[in-house]
C-alpha cells in the first residue's frame, strides 16, 4: 500500500483529483476463495468475462488468458457461469504456504 499522507497533504473534501484511481485499488486482498482456471477445459466462450463484476478476467483477442488476482474478490460468479467447469473455487488457505 502507498504511504498514507497527512491531513494537510491531501485535497479537501475527500475529492479525488485524478481519474481512474480505482485501478490502483487492490481488491484481491478481500478474497476468501480463489478461482483456479484449467485451460484444457476452456472453450473461450467468455461467459466469465461478461459476468465478472470486477473485470478480473484477462482476455486477448477473444481468448481467455486467466484471472487477475490483484482485482479478483473471489465472488465465484465466473465458476458458476462456466459451461465447462473450467474454473474451480478453492479456499485461499490452500495457497498460503505455496506462496511462501
Amino acid at each position: 500500500m502507498a504511504e498514507l499522507k497527512k491531513w494537510n497533504e491531501i485535497p479537501i473534501g475527500g475529492v479525488i483529483t485524478e481519474p481512474g484511481t480505482a485501478r490502483k485499488y487492490q481488491t484481491g486482498t478481500w478474497r476468501v476463495k480463489r478461482p483456479v482456471y484449467d485451460r484444457s477445459k476452456c472453450i473461450d466462450c467468455m461467459m466469465c468475462w461478461f459476468y465478472c463484476p470486477d473485470q478480473a478476467i484477462m482476455e486477448e483477442n477473444s481468448v481467455m488468458k486467466g484471472i487477475n488476482y490483484f482485482y479478483c474478490k473471489g465472488c465465484g460468479i465466473c465458476a458458476n457461469v462456466c459451461p465447462k467447469s473450467a474454473i474451480e473455487m478453492r479456499p485461499e488457505t490452500e495457497f498460503i504456504h505455496k506462496e511462501e
Partner: peptide, 11 residues
C-alpha cells in the same frame, strides 16, 4: 483517510 478529512474541516 476519513479522520484526516475531518481534521481539515476543523482547520
Amino acid at each position: 483517510y476519513y479522520f484526516e478529512h475531518k481534521r481539515q474541516q476543523i482547520e
